[in-house]
């Protein structure tokens, strides 16, 4: 618990809590090394090279970004790889002012779902099916989100410099508006 007092009263320190009979502390030692698998490994290698790769279902034509080895709708292995430009439009976005524990963040964070332009794929009848990425949005203000001005806005990835990329979704720093 923070020693910093911002409210009146007597604050409990961590060791005070631990000394209470009936409280037993356990800090889990649980570590994993997740196998990304065939499809997502290809995706991560692409990110390291500054490319966004998707994969197409040969039956229904859906393009999966992030890629999958299978089409969850057709239950069939996916086929051809597709390179996307990275440009797309904001499908939805939100600005968050608090952490999980509802403490106010110093700087609000904006996250968005970006509908990517995928060659040869227009989404099916359902407007919620598209090649897309969930990521941070930068270069826009809180008001742009609150007023809905970001919806439909053309955006592109802001890549980290090549020497800083590690083959992770964080190789893209955020999505930012495309300047016309």
């Amino acid at each position: 618990m923070s020693e910093e007092k911002s409210l009146p009263g007597t604050y409990l320190r961590e060791r005070d809590l631990q000394s209470l009979p009936g409280i037993v502390e356990h800090r889990p030692d649980v570590k994993y090394l997740y196998s990304a698998g065939q499809a997502q490994s290809m995706f991560l290698r692409g990110l390291k090279d500054g490319r966004i790769l998707g994969v197409r279902c040969m039956r229904c034509g859906r393009v999966y970004v992030p890629p999958r080895s299978y089409c969850e709708y057709c239950f069939a292995p996916t086929g051809d790889w597709v390179e996307l430009s990275g440009e797309g439009e904001v499908h939805t976005a939100v600005v968050s002012y608090i952490s999980t524990f509802r403490e106010r963040l110093e700087k609000p964070e904006i996250v968005a779902v970006v509908k990517l332009y995928a060659p040869g794929y227009t989404n099916k009848d359902d407007e919620y099916e598209f090649a897309g990425m969930f990521h941070k949005l930068c270069g826009v203000g809180e008001d742009d989100v609150i007023n809905g001005r970001v919806i439909g806005m053309r955006v592109k990835p802001r890549w980290r410099p090549p020497e800083e990329r590690i083959g992770s979704v964080t190789d893209i720093e955020c999505f930012e508006p495309v300047q016309s």
Binding site: Q38, Y70, F75
Partner: peptide
């Protein structure tokens, strides 16, 4: 099975069963 994720292993097993 280092080259497949757990989801890909599930898919491969399911594909064969069906």
């Amino acid at each position: 099975v280092g080259d497949l994720s757990f989801r890909e292993m599930m898919f491969e097993a399911a594909l064969r069963a069906y």
